[in-house]
Amino acid sequence: MKGFLLSFRSEFYKSRKTLGFWGSIILPLVITLLALTAFFVKSGDFANKPGILLWIQFSMISLGSMGTLLLPIYTIFVAYSVNNVEHKADTWKTIFSLPISRWSVYGAKYAYAFFLLFICMALFTLLNIGFGNLLSVIKPELKFNEYHMEKELAQVFFKLLLSALGILSIQFLLSLLWSDFLKPMGFGFVATIVGVTLASQKDPWKYTYLLPYSHPMAAIKSMVKNQHGPADRFEIAVFTQEVYVSLIVAVIVFFAGYFIVQKRSVK
């Protein structure tokens, strides 16, 4: 455990000056700032709309862009950047000759990639909530303050995070095994386009849920529970079929990756 924590700390120390780390802050900041600007500039279009509608429209700018393409691409990039720092510096040999178990090194690296995704999703949640409330203060005609959906927003972004873990595990392993940029990124892009295309169909292929790269899109599509209650309340379905598949793929590929790494020679 100590080796894991030391390795995790080292991951932060190494990446704190890289785009891999700052991307997890810049991406939610830029997208939510764009949403804030759009609502601020076009406040007349949204004036006096019900709070629930404002929140949905406002948060869908983040959710829509992340769910369709950005989250898979960002996940691919995070997995690449965490491993690329070692490929670029030729430091695998020094990392694996440290008196720390390979399990700790591998586990900490994966955990750090997960941590970056978590930071990204947490910031999306916080910035959406924060900027929504800010808009109701600076533009009183925008009635964000009349409705609260903090819990639902947190649930949706948590669901998105879980739905990206299958992609994270696969891309993490590919980026670890392949030192070049093109192979893991190329594979990821193609798989994402296929996944998004399949998941965005009105009547998707029945096995689409098995493809991890379709999960973020499918997660957005299945986020609202079918309900019969009042129209101004809705519930978020977090643990849907694609989330379960994503988690199962993540766990299987994570452990398979470890056994590959353990047996593999370090060049």
Partner: peptide, 18 residues
């Protein structure tokens, strides 16, 4: 094996941490 984006001391500090 050196992290090019870190300074010489940061490289050593990273290993010292580990």
């Amino acid at each position: 094996a050196i992290y090019q984006h870190l300074t010489g001391k940061e490289n050593l500090m990273n290993r010292a941490m580990l």
